[in-house]
């Protein structure tokens, strides 16, 4: 088995075991209802994590996604509730704004040679600050379009409900996986994460790919912001604080190497589901503080980082002669 597959398999096995244990304790967790809610409740995180997967595979990081979600939520809410725009028009504008925002960050990362950590940290403050300038308060959205979307539901046997936003997340994962593994852009992203110098000598358009990666991440974060706005029917400038870290955790738990070059979009899906499982378990248990979620996620993250180290250290080829 290829060594890059091993972390993915490990994640899948751990998810299966964890889910089995949870079902043994709470048999009602094995139902279409819980599974449907898994998708709906984690839709915005999942969509964000797809973009984050691209960024991390390319060897970068994007700390601005949580703030972009918050900014998009506020922008959309204000355009609909105050300016009277149709939601679709508001969505289109929000996506365009986010895309150019991501392009700006990508340009800075490539041309100014500033570490992505710093550039996107600045982007995070910009977006969060921008959202707070528009409004300090939560802006509720009441629009028939929102009601229509939330009524778009596929009912499953057993009382489960597949919501529009849950399915949207699944679609984003499928498209993301196709782009990552089956297009030239996807192979350029992996090339960049493997070795940027080799990549440019092999003819990879490094500038275009870097900008593209951050555009994808910001645009998907904005899409997540729209989903979040549909999910909560409101826009709040302090929404989704810290989601960037959840997304990074999901990506790493999903078997993507934090230093870039290796990873799978599908792995991120399992990572998101694993995080969702931990949360659902704690809700089912009822007696545990929700902070246990963070502790479990922390332990999982640590486990996976150690695991990846071991796998990659064990299979490193003999060093080259100098």
């Amino acid at each position: 088995m290829s060594r890059s597959l091993r972390p993915l398999v490990a994640t899948a096995v751990i998810f299966a075991i964890a889910y089995a244990l949870a079902v043994m304790q709470f048999p009602s967790m094995f139902s279409t209802r819980v599974l449907g809610n898994f998708l709906t409740d984690n839709a915005f995180l999942g969509i964000t994590a797809v973009g984050m997967t691209f960024v991390i595979i390319s060897g970068g990081i994007d700390l601005s996604v949580g703030a972009v979600i918050g900014f998009t939520g506020v922008l959309v809410a204000v355009l609909i509730a105050w300016a009277g725009w149709h939601p679709l028009a508001a969505f289109a504008l929000a996506l365009a704004v986010a895309a150019s925002f991501g392009a700006g960050m990508g340009l800075a990362v490539h041309y100014l040679q500033v570490p992505a950590f710093i550039v996107t940290l600045a982007g995070m403050f910009l977006a969060r600050g921008g959202a707070s300038v528009i409004t300090q308060d939560s802006v509720p959205v009441n629009h028939e379009f929102y009601d229509w979307i939330s009524d778009l539901i596929i009912r499953l046997p057993g009382g489960g409900r597949l919501s529009f936003i849950g399915l949207l997340m699944v679609a984003v994962f499928i498209i993301g996986a196709l782009v990552a593994h089956r297009t030239r852009f996807g192979s350029y992203v992996y090339a960049l994460g493997g070795n940027p110098v080799s990549a440019s000598l092999m003819g990879v358009p490094v500038a275009r790919t870097t900008v593209g990666v951050y555009m994808v991440s910001s645009t998907l974060a904005a899409l997540a912001g729209i989903v979040f706005s549909l999910y909560t029917s409101a826009g709040y400038p302090l929404a989704a604080v810290g989601v960037e870290l959840d997304a990074i955790s999901a990506v790493v738990i999903g078997g993507t190497l934090l230093t870039g070059g290796y990873g799978f979009v599908l792995g991120t899906f399992i990572g998101v589901m694993l995080l969702g499982l931990v949360q659902t378990y704690i809700i089912f248990d009822g007696s545990l503080s929700s902070w246990w979620t963070k502790i479990v996620i922390g332990a999982l993250l640590f486990l996976f980082i150690v695991l990846q180290r071991l796998i990659f250290a064990a299979s490193t080829q003999g060093e080259k002669a100098s």
Binding site: L178, A191, G194, M202, G203
Partner: peptide, 23 residues
């Protein structure tokens, strides 16, 4: 100057991969 993290085939074809329906 190749990519150790990618397959041999991709290293041979990167940037010139044969495509079908855009994939």
């Amino acid at each position: 100057n190749l990519l150790p993290n990618r397959s041999v085939a991709e290293n041979l074809f990167l940037g010139h991969q044969p495509t079908r329906f855009g994939l």
